[in-house]
Amino acid sequence: MDRLNIVQKTLMTLTLAFMVLVVVIPLLFFITVSFSSATDMTEFPKRLLPTRSVTVYIEPVEGDTYELFYDYGRGDGYTSIITTGVADRLETHFQRQYSVSVSGDKLLEDFSRTRIEGPMTFSYKKDAFYNFKQFFRIIPNAAPALKNSIIVSLYTILISLTLGSSAGYVIARYRFAGREQLNVALLIVRMFPTVGISIPMAVMLIKMGLFDTMLGLALLYSIPNIALTSWITSSIFIGINKEMEEAAWIFGASRVRTFINITLPLAFPAMAASSMYSFLTAWNDTISALILTNENQTLSLVVYKAIGTTSSGIQYAAAGSIVLILPALVFTFIIRKYIGQMWGGVEL
């Protein structure tokens, strides 16, 4: 390939930088929100990186009470927020507003210095994961939903991989009438949006007693993924030289053993890639889960509902979304090298 000249290089870099920014800035903002306290949320302009501590200005007031001031950074200096001497109220205020987890008694003890030294500022370290804890606290079914999401993803991977790779193997290795048609039919299955088949699925699952269960949900997610898995794996199985299997048969392995010892390990990249697709379908789906579950909700559904219902703070929903993104990110990261192998054309 020819080398790029300086103009082309600059244009290329600018284009790439633009594309990166388009993706990164919203994501960064979203992450910042998930780490922001309630007061941070009221700031404008919003900072890109979340603050790590909070500073308040305390003036002693008559009796045992203190007046608390906070600088919103609007240029009008410290604003009076509350006046109180009750430990519980202070503790709650600090938690809710500043994401600071310090006991009320400790706060009162600190503030008592102002009685001797006069009004002064205090800095407290923010509890970085306050929003995440709060997410699970204010949405009581978030924790079981996380568990449900993991279960339904595992089921989906298991079902799609078992049925899909078996089908893929048969398509790759055996010649039979209707083989081409089957191949196309698999693609057609993939064309139906899962939402579209959710309603008849709901009826079927109710009849089978699988409504509102993770297995039932996994069955729905498996429908498009069995097809996809068999597509991906059959192309890999075709690429695996049949003589490798025949050698195993001759040298003493049964068909099943050959499949487990020889074929499967060689097809592993395809398995990894298709299990990622299965995982992502199950993990990210909201709509079908909305239709097919009642009490046993999945995490994405819970996060979706949290955005609509938690008027108390979008930052908790953002934290929930991060919880939702992370496993998908980690899973994709772990198997990325196998996907690279698969599309990178490894010699088999």
Binding site: N241, E243, M244, E246, A247, A248, W249, I250, F251, G252, A253, S254, I262, L266
Partner: peptide, 16 residues
């Protein structure tokens, strides 16, 4: 095949 007492070398080597 495994019970026939034969062994084979393939064109593609077929080593795993």
């Amino acid at each position: 095949p495994k019970d026939r007492g034969v062994s084979m070398i393939f064109q593609s080597y077929a080593i795993w």
